[in-house]
Simulated assay, not measured.
Amino acid sequence: MAFQTTRPLRFGDCDPSGIAYFPSYLRILDGVMEEFFETLGAGRADLIGERRIGTPTLRLDVTFVHPGFHGDQLEFTARVRGIGRSSLDLEHEVSAGGNVLWTARQRLVATSLETHKSLAWPDDIRAALTHHLETPTDA
């Protein structure tokens, strides 16, 4: 089951010509991932403050297809494609007005904020992630 949300492309996210500035996309994606984890019952305040778990990005492969423009409503779809002991593989599709703007493959890893080493996903988070797990034929 894919996670979906919408974000506006604001003036500050664009270059002087009104086209999305690509680093802004990554900042917005980070906020989308924060919202996704909140729906899992694992918001950042809990993960970082209470559980002392980080979720850094290990790999991110982005393909830009069409430009985004100031005022676009960005439609984010995140699909869980794999869950390892400590890793999480996601596929993202971002569109506006029915056009795919960019796609990304991302691998996050659960880490201890005390040791900065990977750690296994806690059982409750793993169960919530598993609920979202899709196979390529599910798309």
Rank of each mutant, 00 (worst) to 15 (best):
M1N: 10
M1E: 09
M1V: 11
A2N: 12
A2H: 12
Q4C: 13
R7T: 05
R10L: 15
R10N: 09
F11S: 10
G12Y: 14
G12I: 10
G12R: 15
S17W: 14
S17Y: 10
I19S: 12
A20S: 13
Y21E: 02
F22W: 13
F22E: 08
P23E: 00
P23S: 07
Y25W: 13
Y25D: 05
R27N: 13
I28T: 05
L29W: 00
L29Y: 08
L29Q: 04
D30M: 04
D30S: 11
G31K: 05
V32G: 02
V32S: 02
F36T: 05
F36K: 03
F36H: 04
F36S: 01
E38K: 09
E38A: 14
T39Y: 02
L40D: 08
L40F: 06
G41K: 06
G41H: 02
R44Y: 12
R44T: 11
A45P: 05
A45H: 12
I48T: 08
G49Y: 01
E50V: 15
E50Q: 15
R52W: 13
G54W: 06
T55W: 07
T55E: 05
T55S: 12
P56I: 01
R59S: 13
L60P: 06
L60G: 04
L60N: 14
L60E: 09
D61F: 00
V62Y: 00
V62Q: 02
T63Q: 14
T63G: 09
T63Y: 07
F64A: 10
V65S: 11
H66D: 11
G68N: 06
F69L: 13
Q73M: 13
L74N: 03
E75W: 07
F76L: 03
F76G: 03
A78V: 15
R79T: 09
V80C: 06
G82R: 09
G82K: 10
G84L: 02
S86A: 15
S86G: 10
S86K: 02
S86D: 04
S87G: 08
S87I: 02
L88E: 01
D89T: 13
L90N: 06
L90W: 04
E91R: 10
H92G: 03
E93D: 14
S95D: 06
A96I: 02
N99F: 14
N99A: 14
L101G: 00
L101A: 02
L101C: 04
A104R: 03
R105K: 14
R105Q: 12
R105E: 08
R107K: 11
R107D: 01
V109L: 04
V109N: 02
A110Y: 00
S112T: 03
S112E: 03
L113Q: 04
T115W: 06
T115C: 09
K117P: 04
K117H: 12
L119H: 09
A120F: 06
A120V: 10
W121G: 07
W121V: 00
W121Y: 11
P122H: 05
D123R: 11
D124L: 08
D124E: 14
I125P: 01
R126I: 07
A127S: 15
A127E: 15
A127K: 15
A128W: 05
A128V: 00
T130I: 01
T130Q: 13
H132K: 07
L133T: 07
E134K: 01
T135D: 10
P136S: 03
D138I: 00
A139D: 12
